[in-house]
Design a protein around this nucleic acid. Structure first.
Lengths: 178, 178
DNA sequence: TAGTTTGTACAGTAAAAACTGTACGAACTG
DNA sequence: CAGTTCGTACAGTTTTTACTGTACAAACTA
């Protein structure tokens, strides 16, 4: 009775988290698992999760792997049980930072290399004598755009750095200072 | 021949953009459309997009709507054509900011209200005389967690503000200053 | 050693999302 | 006014993604 009231209050938050977690590239059911772990005082085993969420153990295994990759969950050891135990990372600031470093940074690199490669090709093209002026004009515009894009990704990389080093908290402090 | 070389260089960048755009919650084909528009010197009509990407006009219509909602594309007017014309937002810094304000901010609000509602319920529960100590202990832990969560979302909201106001560029300047 | 238990790979199924074609309202044209 | 053209709602289809059950390797137990 009292317990159910607490559960209901938890449920609401878990459900909201799980629905909004798509911004992190996380599906609702993985989000729900994270929410469950977040409110759990003690680490959980795959079987307990399976039991609690009414899903297959296989799903729990892959969901947990997802969360581990994002560092939103960690494997912990607890004596007695032979089973793996998992608990949620509770520091959401840290989670936010990890999200950017694990998901955004690789993407930044990929974009930069693609742009640089194409820039080289276009610059080569621009030196061609017989290329029609029409194409050359387009190529010149592309060069401008690609430089701007490069500049953006450089900025984004520096932004992620400021998350990772914690510099961001100078501008936006963790605790409201008013 | 020369044109094909330029196209190939563009294609690479477009493909990379479209693949990495899932971080923005954008599907590859919508990303490809954005890439196409980005390199296009003049605004395009739905029919031109359809032609270029070999997809249905319906898809173009919904994809463009997606991009409009994210402010990654804008509708422009051009005399002569009766058709709607669309062009890509070229300032990616702005796009980044818009992404956070349109997608993250609503999510922040939702989370905050859910947490506040649940906090109230739990605080009510904590005043119950006959509630078992076990439940009360869990409830007290939850209150702590929810306050931390609230603090995180407050921080996230202030971070988004710093994007929107441009304050972020004080900490991470657009142009590398070395 | 043989017998459990645990986690996950893999193949198959169920659910969700993306995409298409048709149909139609609204806005133009003559 | 009838006749086009344009964009999109909607239903149906295809493709993708999520999830499950089986099977098996690795690690433990007696």
């Amino acid at each position: 009775m009292y317990e159910e009231r607490l559960d209901k209050a938890r449920e609401r938050v878990i459900e909201t988290i799980s629905q909004n977690m798509n911004l992190y590239g996380i599906t609702p059911s993985v989000g729900r698992l994270y929410g469950l772990l977040y409110f759990q005082a003690v680490p959980m085993t795959l079987d307990e999760m399976k039991e609690e969420l009414g899903m297959s153990k296989t799903s729990m295994s892959t969901s947990v792997r997802n969360l581990l990759e994002l560092k939103m969950v960690e494997k912990v050891w607890r004596k007695g049980s032979r089973k793996d135990q998992y608990q949620a990372e509770e520091d959401w600031h840290q989670t936010f930072v990890d999200l950017f470093t694990t998901k955004w940074r690789p993407s930044i690199s990929m974009n930069i290399s693609a742009i640089e490669k194409s820039l080289k090709e276009i610059n080569l093209l621009l030196e061609e004598e017989n290329a029609p002026e029409e194409v050359l004009a387009a190529a010149r515009e592309d060069v401008t755009k690609l430089h701007e894009a490069l500049n953006y990704y450089d900025w984004l990389g520096r932004l992620v750095n400021s998350f990772e080093t914690g510099e961001i908290y100078q501008l936006v402090p963790k605790e409201r200072n008013s």
